[in-house]
Design a protein around this nucleic acid. Structure first.
Lengths: 301, 301
DNA sequence: CTTTCGTGTTGCGTTTTCGGCTACGCACCT
DNA sequence: AGGTGCGTAGCCGAAAACGCAACACGAAAG
């Protein structure tokens, strides 16, 4: 049994084709074929079904595929840890984050951080909170930044920061200079809200629910950019964390007005890491940087 | 980078000697030496410090050692899963259990179970609850049976069964025919108790604590057999689950008398498995067998 | 201080494994 | 029918792993 065989198999799983896998691995197709054969002999079971139109995993193959990827990533991870203790300041941080909301907090942080550590590389994947958590658990990600991290085993929340959702409106809007907006006033405005797939929407519905009201949004969208655009054009108002639109606010395009009576919608932004995986030096530095950043931005905590 | 190198390294870690590792692996010492050399080149760091009296792991070596063992076990585990779906009824179940108390429940179950599945092999390690949980998390164990499973991430409790601690006394003891014994009466008896390292002791101290009493044990021991022996010889009485001394009770040597007023010490026996690891067919069968067994023995649940 | 023992390591010849090339069989599509 | 893509045997050269013997080194014993 050979590690290289696992590597080939892993690529084969991705491509579903011996020849394609061989191409990506820069080896001859026969090499891949042979290694898969070896693997099958070792496990004493057929791993793939050959056909003239590529290959397909058998049940046994799926079992192995699941582990093979993890195994290879874990060994890579050890390599990085060892590089760390040699003091090399290289490395890559793989980060999963969900939604454009978070991107607005992450982009500036990463920009600043990468200036401090010019030799680091970053891989940022935008995904749902669920995918981010799964990536953590599978060892694909170093860090996940999510809204409402599901309380799932295999995940450690390093930092949880509450953000309040303000009413976001165009500067031209009559209420844009208001100090506060009540929920009742909000009901009368044309609303653009994220669709029900978003954790934020859940919290928004709760807000209205507590007042025994039901919002009748004019627009429902899964794109946060769309929300912004609609508000910028004066077509609607929406609810978003102030930090998601800070740039537009500072440019004088939008206003963020709190909801009255401290009834603001609140959502937690969670910074998660894997508990049974040691962070690389690069990932550790980034986590601590983010923690500091949030502490500065949100000194109340 | 080669899997075989990892295998050699793993054995080297265990033996701390190239020659001994080579011996166990049935290869020449040079083979081990060369593979370790390869590994060091691959990781670009020294993994072991050579001396004339064996080898010692470096920091990098420890990092790799931790992962290497897991990786090899995981691949073995996949192998077993694949064997499972070929329908082979072989396989091995690795079980960690803590303390003689548990052994008294496990031994009969295993004995019966192995008759039903004669081709299965079992590996039972007696350890502390903590070690058992860690073995689960590290992928060394399929199943852990513990008292008071610490609520730790990376562990799923499949079954939790409360056991009550009765007063255990010799048949010759004047109170051996009593129906109940109060805590106050208990205070007047010569006590033999497990030492403070045991979860049970914690629960026993709580029992007295609730009555604002403090036990003054005549004997304190870390051996449950010692407890039994002391009671058998009439030197003391102790507190143990009835099932831990059932054989002696049935032989007419000991009596188990409940504590009055339902104030019995209660402890949970937890059957734990790893949440992110699929059970092999053998392990699954054993878990289900234990669950059935407990349900029969304890139908109140 | 010398011998002895046990350690890990080097040099070299042998064995095993791996990879690439070419050619083949096969099913599908045109 | 012919073409196109697939995975796969046969052969050969290259590379890697191995084992044997000999070595260098240091600690412990004589």
């Amino acid at each position: 049994m050979n590690l290289r065989a696992l590597l080939y198999f892993d690529e084969l799983v991705r491509t579903n084709s011996m020849r394609a896998a061989a191409e990506n691995l820069n080896v001859a197709p026969t090499a891949v074929s042979r290694q898969i054969e070896n693997l099958e002999e070792y496990f004493g079971a057929q791993l793939v079904e050959r056909s003239n139109r590529g290959i397909r995993l058998t049940a046994a193959g799926r079992l192995l595929a699941e582990r093979a990827g993890k195994t290879l990533r874990e060994l890579d991870h050890v390599h990085q840890l060892i590089d760390d203790l040699k003091g090399l300041q290289g490395g890559k941080v793989v980060l999963y984050a969900n939604g454009a909301t978070v991107a607005n907090v992450i982009a500036p942080v990463l920009a600043e951080f990468s200036l401090l550590h010019p030799r680091l590389r970053f891989e940022v994947t935008i995904s749902s909170a669920r995918e981010a958590i799964e990536a953590l658990a599978a060892g694909e990600a170093d860090i996940a930044v999510t809204l409402f991290a599901p309380p799932m085993a295999g995940v450690k929340v390093r930092l949880s920061s509450e953000v309040a959702y303000d009413v976001i409106l165009s500067r031209q809007h009559p209420l844009s200079k208001a100090e506060k907006i009540t929920v009742v006033e909000l009901m009368k405005l044309p609303l653009a809200l994220p669709d029900r797939g978003f954790a934020a929407r859940q919290a928004i519905d709760d807000l209205f629910g507590r007042e025994k009201l039901e919002p009748d949004p004019l627009f429902v969208t899964s794109s946060l950019d769309m929300l912004k655009e609609l508000v910028l054009r004066g077509a609607a108002v929406t609810l978003l964390p102030e930090l998601a639109v800070r740039r537009e606010v500072e440019a004088g395009l939008l206003s963020a007005v709190p909801i009255a009576d401290g009834k603001a919608v609140r959502t937690a932004i969670d910074l998660c890491v894997s508990p049974d995986r040691q962070l690389t030096a690069a990932a550790k530095a980034l986590v601590e940087f983010i923690e500091d950043h949030v502490r500065v931005a949100n000194p109340a905590r």
